[in-house]
Design a binder for these strands. Structure first.
Lengths: 345, 345
DNA sequence: TTGTAAGCGTTATCAT
DNA sequence: ATGATAACGCTTACAA
């Protein structure tokens, strides 16, 4: 029987190995119907006898049949998968961005496959290599310049997170650092500070540092490289180390602007460890608006960013790209920080 | 020319709509070669003239051609996608679990599509409905009982997170709450506490509460329902509310064991707000070991869980399931908490 | 080096 | 109500 079906049956060496998955054909055979009928039963379309339907479903159950998503995808269009590349799941900032991406994607019926690049450029590229085969578009944080990205993209649409128009030609969603920092420095100025340092988190002169320098110069405050310390890590530990450095270089500062909240919290800890009271002796201003900032002592004054919105905007850009519309750059699509005054500054 | 190709060209109504994606066929036509040759060029196999290869690649570029992942998946086996369902990306606990899942999945060359169920059982089911069509297995947090899950699984393998053998017949990865709580209560006892309350986070008598009751009774400490308060939310706010409740019901307690760190931090805040010093008047013990616990004041004593490991173990279970091996339950595969003593207790 | 043919597992269309 | 047949877009033999 079925002698024409020269299906290579598994050798049955291992008693319980991962056998070949059952196909619609197998189910049809077992139920004694055509594949079409199986399809109808499984997708419960009408036009099928309840009795045969039950029989088919039973056969499917028996064989542990699940339709191949590939075969389905091939014939039913419209399954969209976007890749999301995040640098560091341990920084509370990024899970919130991810939440925004997931939320917006779900509303459109899209799926999101996530990659944790762990702040490693090689891993960023690796993510692109893989995702360019598995996703319809990618959203994420990348350090590489446009040409390198293009190389690993294989033509797949990309939306960059936190990149301004000067930094990339790709579609992007930015943070209006200038607007944020202006508020922050104004606040420090109001409190009487004239000697303000910065704890930066990136090497090149990124938007936050640039904005800082502009504000500080506009108000005629003293500043040069020694007023800016680099934090190797975007973490509390990184902030502590950076603050130590900064305080060694410029002991006279009365306020610091930190690249992000984690660094700011580290700065507070280092300052206190060195005997300075915060904010009395040293004011600390963060950038992020993490929930965490409310829980530390003193509570962190910070430039709050709507992280979910950042994620949502990115998905919106993907939609534009897919629709063939003109993508926006990180100035046109951006979220603007809002000063939240708490105790630290 | 090509008059046999009755391809329905897009009506070209919208000038820039999302046209039909180019297929390997289109590229072949444009380059004047067979589809096979295109395939060779794109996947850069050998056996192809460098000149034609270049010509093909150019054509592909022109048409913005990207191979269909569905067609590919159909013919090349081995693309594995696992779904990950997480209840709350804003609780720092879960991103770390996710990081573990991502890490282990990546090592196996698997992809992970993530769903945020936002602690909503309806959304959990929805996630299963979708993922049962798009993933090869699912890992995650689910509240529904086994039979409901089965219904939405469509035969797809499932690995439950933080579920013991009494709670599910599915494969699972658990947390050895009993071992953890034993350490915690012993510590409180050592410090002289005899009146210990609990801030629970789930309604039914979950493993943490059960373990708490067992320890407390074993040591002959007083306890009844009034010693346990429910926190509606697993958050700092939830912890504050719960602590208020507990302190109203049992003002005499000198220590609390909290369902998780966020709740514990809320408890500290509520206690202090009500004029109690922590830990002098009231000791607070958390459960999670969030990094955050080191940053609050006083630093949180907690039962630390290796969250990444939890995620890794879950992926390992998926591998077993796929290999047809016997899955483990949440006792066989589990992570055991470790007491980390800091200032709060 | 290149092309032809067969199949991967499904669904849509059109008969029956 | 059910079945045949033709796609869907790609890769892997096998020929040429």
């Amino acid at each position: 029987m079925w002698s024409d079906n020269q299906q290579r049956e598994p050798q049955d060496g291992a008693p319980d190995g991962p056998r070949r998955r059952a196909t619609i054909h197998d189910v049809a055979r077992l139920a004694g119907v055509s594949r079409q009928t199986v399809s109808r039963a499984v997708n419960d379309k009408g036009e099928i006898d309840p009795a045969t339907k039950e029989r088919v479903l039973e056969a499917a159950r028996l064989l542990d049949y699940r339709p191949s998503r590939f075969a389905r995808g091939l014939v039913r269009k419209g399954t969209v998968t976007v890749g999301l590349v995040i640098p560091d799941l341990k920084n509370p900032f990024f899970p919130e961005v991810a939440a925004g991406v997931l939320e917006a994607a779900e509303q459109r019926g899209w799926q999101v496959v996530v990659w944790d690049s762990r702040i490693d450029e090689a891993r960023e590229r690796e993510a692109l290599d893989v995702l360019s085969h598995q996703a319809d578009a990618v959203v994420g944080y990348f350090k590489d310049p446009d040409d390198v990205l293009t190389q690993h993209l294989g033509g797949m649409p990309l939306v960059l997170l936190e990149r301004g128009p000067q930094q990339t030609g790709f579609a992007a969603v930015g943070i209006d650092a200038a607007a944020g920092v202006a508020q922050g420095i104004a606040h420090l100025l109001d409190a009487g500070h004239r000697r303000i340092g910065m704890l930066d988190g990136v090497h090149g002169p990124g938007p936050r540092r640039l904005a800082f320098l502009e504000q500080v110069r506009r108000h005629g405050l003293p500043v040069d490289e020694s007023w800016i310390a680099m934090c190797a890590e975007h973490s509390v530990a990184g902030g502590e180390a950076g603050m130590d450095q900064l305080l060694d270089a410029q002991p006279e500062i009365t306020a610091v602007f930190a690249f992000n909240d984690l660094i700011a919290i580290g700065a507070v800890r280092a300052a206190r460890r060195r005997g300075r009271r915060v904010p009395e002796d040293l004011a600390v201003l963060g950038f992020d608006g993490l929930a965490l900032g409310e829980l530390v002592e003193p509570a962190l004054t910070t430039l709050h960013i709507d992280k979910r919105q950042l994620g949502r905007l990115a998905v919106e850009q993907v939609a534009r790209l897919r629709a063939g519309e003109e993508p926006m750059n990180g100035t046109e699509a951006s979220v603007v920080p809002e000063l939240v005054v708490r105790a630290s500054a």
